[in-house]
Nucleic acid binder design. Structure first.
Length: 574
RNA sequence: GGCCCCGUAGCUCAGAGGAUAGAGCAACCGCCUCCUAAGCGGUAGGUCAUAGGUUCGACUCCUAUCGGGGCCGCCA
């Protein structure tokens, strides 16, 4: 049940009736008619802009439409009063029963409350993290992992058929670098002195991989030249790195449905097939690109390459898909990978990249648009930088990796729940300050704590109520304005889920939960002044049952919301 | 030079084209013999970067300008 959608349906039916009666002309569109919570609660429970958006096409003054619509809506059972305000707003006050019903439904529906049919089973592929398999995940990856995972859960909650996917860049030159680095560690494991020059990965995390390689092959590769061991160690090292990465993701509770290997594209003909598809559409040609302006790189010289005419699909310049030596650029397998996603019949694609890949967005959109003939939308979401702080000071160093702070560093310091929630308290395209101290601080400055505290408070009173052996009626008793405010907030949840899902913005869930917690804490404190507003009433099971339905509903929605964010609701604070 | 993101209270940030632009922090004033005061209530604080445009209506959409960040042939 989405009370806003229900009221909108009522309004649309009334408008249809007005057309039938000749009060409004035919051929009007209701598309712009919205029903939303008013900015100021004093205006009522809901507001609609119907009269204003219809005034011009109907050729009538907005106030006239508003008055006529108001008269008819006033007879609806759910609607208590209707006021025309401002330029033509209709402010609706709903009968109290509506809020009782909302609370009852939340408690009754439990984990299903807020689920939406909006997605209608549409197949969505969410690709996220996709970090190179060359080392542990760092903070930037962490944000992408959290964002992608929460978005995927949000879409699933909204009725989409979601696949979570990780693209492993295991085909490029960086894997050679990895393999050589592992080889050095392998020699080290055999007691040799080695030097890590530029172009190798010196991180400690490869020591164990070198030792594992020794355990597997003994001294077979010692003293051998590169041709003898490179392919084997590439595979071995990549697998080891993916184990490491899967472990890192596990720390955050992120589980992918698919790990898709770039290397697996080679030799299957898929790249050729994808490029051939573009070629048939007249989008592949040999040519020479203009030098990039403004930067004037020293070693730039014009070369003929095979290019993809991405400008035909909104890009700024055409993009090379083959290097001058004839081998594929990185872009080519990427095109093939997205071609594969389209062939797997996904209806929508979402890619989550770090902000440094911003320059890649247009060409990916161009490729998907061209390959799917514009049928499959691709939404590329960029996650901006995370700046780490400790005691208010910028925080950089990692013992583990030497140069960057790893996902593991963060999660071990503050925990998965805190990491996830904090990373979702910003829009993905806004930079995020992550302060280790604030993240674990137990005060209302810390939104994680604040929301968890509300949930814990509900669980606390429920434990108390359980001792009374009462009849867990879901028939709420709502009288006070603070109670109604909480109920109204609960009623917004299904609407919020749809808005957040439609915009691919899981951060809205985090902000909503904060607001809900705030309303709840306010109600809780009203119990100080007005004991009748408390939830537990010693010796009065009937009253307790009626009063405890509302906090139970709050716990349900907080729990559902945190579930989407991948955060565990706590039973008590400690 | 081009492209992308950002610019909202002193600070950190919300804000489906709607009404008098919101929240937290910081400042000031209040509230615990009572379900967790780890909380709540109140006061104060604004040319929504600037200038145009579209619209009945713009923080929101379009254009230009200014400021901050990121990216910019064969690296991935």
């Amino acid at each position: 049940m989405n009370i806003f959608a229900d009221i909108r349906t009522t309004i649309i039916e009334t408008l249809d009736a007005m057309v039938a009666d000749g009060a409004l002309p035919a051929n009007l569109s209701w598309g712009n008619v919205t029903v939303e919570p008013p900015r100021d609660a004093a205006h009522g429970d809901m507001a609609t802009n119907a009269a204003m958006v219809l005034a011009k096409p109907a050729g009538q003054p907005p106030r006239a439409i508003a008055d006529a619509l108001a008269d008819r809506l006033a007879t609806e059972a759910m609607i208590e009063t209707v006021n025309v305000a401002g330029p033509g707003f209709l402010n609706l006050r709903l009968v109290p029963d509506v809020w009782h019903d909302v609370v009852a439904e939340v408690v009754d529906a439990g984990a299903r409350f807020g689920h939406s049919g909006m997605g209608a089973g549409v197949k969505v592929n969410v690709e996220y993290v996709s970090a190179n398999p060359t080392g542990p995940l760092h903070v930037g990856h962490t944000r992408g992992a959290v964002f992608g995972d929460a978005l995927a859960s949000l879409l699933a909650f909204a009725g989409y058929d979601v696949t979570r996917e990780y693209y492993i860049n295991d085909g490029g030159a960086q894997v050679d670098v990895l393999a050589r680095s592992v080889y050095l560690r392998y020699l080290e494991a055999h007691g040799q002195e080695v030097a890590f020059e530029d172009g190798t990965y010196p991180g400690d995390y490869l020591i164990a991989v070198g030792e594992a390689l020794k355990a597997k092959v003994g001294d077979a590769y010692v003293g051998q030249n590169e041709e003898a061991w490179l392919p084997d160690i590439r595979a071995f090292a990549t697998e080891a790195m993916m184990d490491l990465i899967r472990g890192d993701l596990g720390l955050l509770g992120v589980k992918m449905d698919h790990f898709y290997s770039e290397k697996s594209l080679y030799g299957t003909g898929l790249i050729e097939e994808a490029i051939d598809d573009l070629d048939k559409k007249g989008l592949i040609y040999r040519g020479t690109l203009e030098p990039p302006k403004g930067k004037a790189p020293e070693d730039w010289e014009p070369r003929e390459q095979v290019l993809f005419r991405s400008t035909a699909h909104g890009d700024d310049v055409d993009r090379p898909i083959k290097k001058s030596d004839g081998s594929w650029t990185y872009f080519a397998p990427d095109i093939a990978y997205h071609w594969d996603k389209i062939k797997r019949e996904f209806d929508e694609l979402i890619d989550i990249f770090g902000a440094d890949h911003g320059g890649y967005v247009k060409r990916m959109n161009a490729a998907v648009s061209a390959l799917s003939d514009g049928r499959v939308p691709l939404d590329v979401k960029l996650t901006q930088l995370v700046k780490l702080y400790k005691n208010g000071e910028p925080f950089k160093m990692s013992k583990r990796a030497g140069t960057f702070v790893t996902l593991r560093d963060v999660v071990e310091q503050v925990g998965s729940d805190v990491t996830r929630f904090v990373m979702l308290t910003r829009k993905n395209d806004a930079p995020l300050d992550f302060d280790f101290d604030k993240a674990i601080e137990q005060s209302k400055d810390n939104p994680v704590f604040y929301v968890q505290y509300a949930h814990a408070r509900v669980r606390s009173v429920m434990r108390k109520a359980e001792e009374m052996h009462l009849d867990w009626s879901d028939n709420a008793k709502l009288e006070d304005e603070a109670e109604l405010a909480v109920a109204r907030k609960l009623a917004e949840w299904p609407r919020l889920v749809e808005i957040a899902a439609r915009n691919h913005e899981p951060h809205r869930v985090a902000f909503y939960l904060y607001e809900l917690a705030s309303e709840f804490h306010a109600l809780w404190n009203r119990g100080n002044d007005k004991p009748e507003l408390r939830f537990v009433h010693e010796g009065n099971p009937q009253l307790t049952a009626a009063k405890i339905a509302l906090p139970r509903a709050v716990a349900v929605v907080i729990s559902n919301g945190l579930g989407i964010l991948g955060v565990t609701p706590v039973e008590e604070m400690r």
